[in-house]
Amino acid sequence: MSADVTRGVPAAAGQGVSTSGQDDWKPLRQYTRARIGLARSGNTLKTPDVLEFQAAHAQARDAVHTPLDVACIEQALADEPFLHVNSRAPDRSTYLRRPDLGRRLSEESLAALPKGAWDVVFVAADGLSSTATQQGAVPLFEAMRARLADWQIAPLVVATQARVALGDEIAQTMGAGMVVVMIGERPGLSVADSMGVYLTYAPYVGCPDSSRNCLSNIHPHGLSVQVAADKLAWLMREARHLKLTGVGLKDAAPEGGAIGSVDRLS
């Protein structure tokens, strides 16, 4: 059942089931995850579909509101050093209302970050789905270290109540040449655990989003960690070579489909 909920694949009962007991929409469901062919009771949805929808919504909301389990990430990292920072948003409610606070480090965190001659710093940020970060950030970090053996990589920074741009201040403070922010994407009903990765060369506080490159849809049923790591390693080497990220790097990429995002109105 839980797998069905995660994928938004309709359960057997209630959905487009005709009097013969067959799912008339089955041949078409292979083409889309959309909730097509939901049967009607009168004009409206049947009980199993109403509850299935609520279960998916609950899972998405939990992904937004469950705090990132920093101790669990520490365990996954074994004995490796890592840093934990927080944005200026003290809690989730403030975080959701004030994206500006999520882009800046708290004073305490700012003072605690070390300086170093690092090529790159990786940030595991909760964003809008702690579930995604919990699941994907450490595996991707480890996969990148395996691919970037000759790079000076800063200790992993775990960031809570964090937006993408928080990575700019982290990298600027630490003196890192580029930043990779691994962050939980806004959950949908069919995927609540999708992680996005944003790469920014020579980041600084206030640098525009157009200077970043993005890989999205990293989750068990989407882009795999290993494929994402290959794409990210290519982007990082090119960024170091071209001394830039953003549109200039996107245009140079071998496959445009890897990079970018959809935004409807803003």
């Binding site: 959309a34 909730r35 097509i36 939901l38 009607r40 949805l45 806004r186 009903l189 995927v191 959809v262």
Partner: peptide, 18 residues
């Protein structure tokens, strides 16, 4: 949208049924 769940834009609208 089908079942109120937009699987591309990842948000909820109204279902056809609604």
């Amino acid at each position: 949208v089908p079942g109120a769940d937009d699987v591309m834009l990842n948000y909820q609208s109204l279902a056809f049924h609604d």
